[in-house]
Design a protein around this nucleic acid. Structure first.
Lengths: 194, 194
DNA sequence: GTCTATAACGAGATAGAC
DNA sequence: GTCTATCTCGTTATAGAC
């Protein structure tokens, strides 16, 4: 065993801890000290892997977006109908909330004005990609007859994402997963054909 | 600057500046120094008016909730029909977004885990009050025939608030007011009778 | 790759003069 | 009611030893 595999593990472990802290407390409310203490290393070691907090933030978003994209492709790969796929999409958000986490990019959207440009661009990119995917799903569902809605698919996609991000935001203070389910359930039934 | 006529209203001026900073940057990303510098006073003077940052935060939410409540009563006092009242409700959020601001309590909801108990309670109280008001409006609209929706009014009210908070959250990074309008417009048309 | 040590700064908060 | 001065602590970040 060389020393290299260990390095990759530490990098990943840092991302894991930082990701959870950002999703729960926000980017401006976690510190290198928090992450270092939890991993049993020093902040200096942390700076070896991620030179600056902004750099760590960029890596956080990049990995999160890639994981999210993977989840979307997994949904696409199922033989389910569009309504079931939309439900699966809602469930991605639900699982984060069940872990007392906000969507990473939803949290960063709140703190948007305090972020460096590279992080801002990455956050916007995440939402654009999601909007594109949801719009595609809605459109194919409308063509297949599983969905019914007025206006453009893009407009409805924005509604879906806004409602889900907002549901997480508001349900978390209540500590009420059922409140999220109510919003998601209502969202799904809104697209059901009459 | 020392002869500012604002001197007698320092407490209010502090709230004004702090409120804008929290709505734009978040509670954890503004400091006594930021507020003091903008007002041309020292942080020591600030501590005279608000002994701690948490105390300032509580006053911020209390005033915000009262102002919001006043806006709701103003809507109630109009002779408009429920759909027009719901549109007016959406417009409260829209005006904040036009000023590049998140809803104060939406921002604090993101930072919820980092807040002291009194601030948490005040944030939850704000959302409960809003949910109550919107549910009442939806119910009276359904009875009068201006609205049509399935399920309980409370459930639909949660959907409305989640969508509006989420629309603000997601639209702000884009700097796109029209994106908020799309979500709000879709929300309003969803409640229109078939 | 991780450590010790420390720099450099900003934060919230307090004491006491005016 | 506001000031100067100061305290204490936490933060990001760097230098250099191991």
């Amino acid at each position: 065993m060389s020393a290299s595999p260990r390095a990759a593990n530490t990098k990943t472990a840092i991302l894991d801890v930082a990701e959870r802290l950002v999703q729960r407390r926000g980017f401006n409310a976690f510190s290198y000290g928090d992450v270092a203490a939890e991993l049993g290393i020093t902040t200096a070691a942390l700076h070896y892997h991620y030179a600056s907090k902004s750099e760590l933030g960029e890596s956080l978003i990049t990995r999160y977006a890639a994981t999210f994209e993977g989840a979307l492709q997994a949904i696409d790969a199922t033989a389910e109908e569009p309504p079931a796929k939309l439900a699966a999409y809602c469930d991605i958000y639900r699982r984060a909330l069940a872990g007392h986490r906000m969507c990473l990019c939803g949290m960063l959207a709140a703190e948007f004005e305090t972020l460096a440009t590279p992080m801002r661009d990455a956050v916007v990119g995440f939402f654009e990609e999601n909007e594109r995917w949801v719009a595609g799903l809605l459109e194919s569902g409308r063509e297949a007859g599983g969905f019914s809605f007025a206006g453009t698919a893009q407009r409805s996609a924005r509604m879906v994402i806004a409602a889900l991000e907002g549901a997480m935001l508001v349900a978390r203070p209540y500590g009420d997963l059922e409140m999220f389910d109510e919003v998601a359930g209502r969202l799904l039934s809104d697209f059901a054909p009459a």
